[in-house]
C-alpha cells in the first residue's frame, strides 16, 4: 500500500502505476458536471478560479447532506466520463489528479500523459464508508449548486486505486485481461 500526501506533485504522480492501491491523505476539491462547466467558463473568460489548480486533485462527488454533528454525508464517486469534455483544459493548467469511477475518453488520457496526471478510482457505491473517512468539508465556491458546489475536503488515508497512470496504462483494460488469463488457466473458461 502506497501512502500519498498532498500536494500531489509530478514526482509522486510519476511513481504510480495502474493497479496500485494507495492511501490518500490531504486536500481534495469536489466538482461534478455543473461546477466543471463553471470552471471552464471562467478559464475561457480569463477570470480567476476559486482554487489553485497546480498539483490539485479533484474528486467527482456530490455528497448527501451531513447529519447534525457530521461534516458530510455519503460521498462516493460519480461516473467520470461526464467530465471528459472539461478535464483536458484543467489538466493543461496544472490539475494533477482526478478521482472518480468509470471510463475516460482518449483526449483525457492524452492530456494526462502530456501533463503527468493520474486518474484514481474510488469504489462506487461505498459512499457511507468514504463519507466516514472525510475529516473536514467546506463549501468554497458555487454554493447555489447545492450538492454540486465546490467543496474543499480533507481526507485521511482514503483508499484509492490507480486506474490510469501518467504513462496512460489503464487498469480497466489490463485488470479484466489479467483476470481472463487467470480464469482460462484455472477453470478452462
Amino acid at each position: 500500500m502506497i501512502e500519498i500526501k498532498t500536494p500531489f506533485t509530478v514526482q509522486q504522480a510519476d511513481q504510480l502505476h495502474a493497479g496500485d492501491s494507495v492511501l490518500f491523505t490531504g486536500t481534495l476539491y469536489t466538482a461534478r458536471d455543473a461546477a466543471h462547466a463553471r470552471l471552464c467558463q471562467a478559464l475561457e473568460e480569463g477570470r480567476p478560479l476559486p482554487f489553485d489548480l497546480t498539483d490539485a486533485v479533484i474528486y467527482y462527488v456530490g455528497p448527501t447532506p451531513p447529519r447534525p454533528g457530521r461534516v458530510i454525508g455519503s460521498a462516493g464517486p460519480t461516473t467520470s466520463y461526464r467530465m471528459d469534455a472539461y478535464s483536458p483544459a484543467l489538466l493543461d493548467r496544472g490539475l494533477r489528479g482526478m478521482i472518480g469511477k468509470g471510463l475516460r475518453g482518449r483526449e483525457v488520457i492524452e492530456a494526462m500523459r502530456r501533463n503527468h496526471a493520474v486518474y484514481f478510482g474510488a469504489v462506487g457505491g461505498t459512499g457511507a464508508l468514504i463519507g466516514r473517512a472525510i475529516r473536514t468539508a467546506e463549501v468554497i465556491a458555487y454554493e447555489d449548486l447545492g450538492t454540486e458546489a465546490i467543496r474543499r475536503l480533507t481526507v485521511e488515508k482514503l483508499p484509492l486505486t490507480v486506474v490510469i497512470d501518467t504513462q496512460g496504462n489503464n487498469l480497466y483494460e489490463t485488470g479484466p485481461q489479467q483476470y481472463l488469463e487467470f480464469a482460462g488457466q484455472h477453470f478452462n473458461q
Binding site: 462527488v61 456530490g62 455528497p63 448527501t64 447529519r67 457530521r70 454525508g73 455519503s74 460521498a75 462516493g76 460519480t78 457505491g125 461505498t126 459512499g127 457511507a128 463519507g131 466516514r132 450538492t147
Partner: peptide
C-alpha cells in the same frame, strides 16, 4: 443510520 448507502440517493 448516519450515512446513506450511496451518495446518489
Amino acid at each position: 443510520g448516519d450515512y446513506p448507502l450511496c451518495q446518489d440517493t
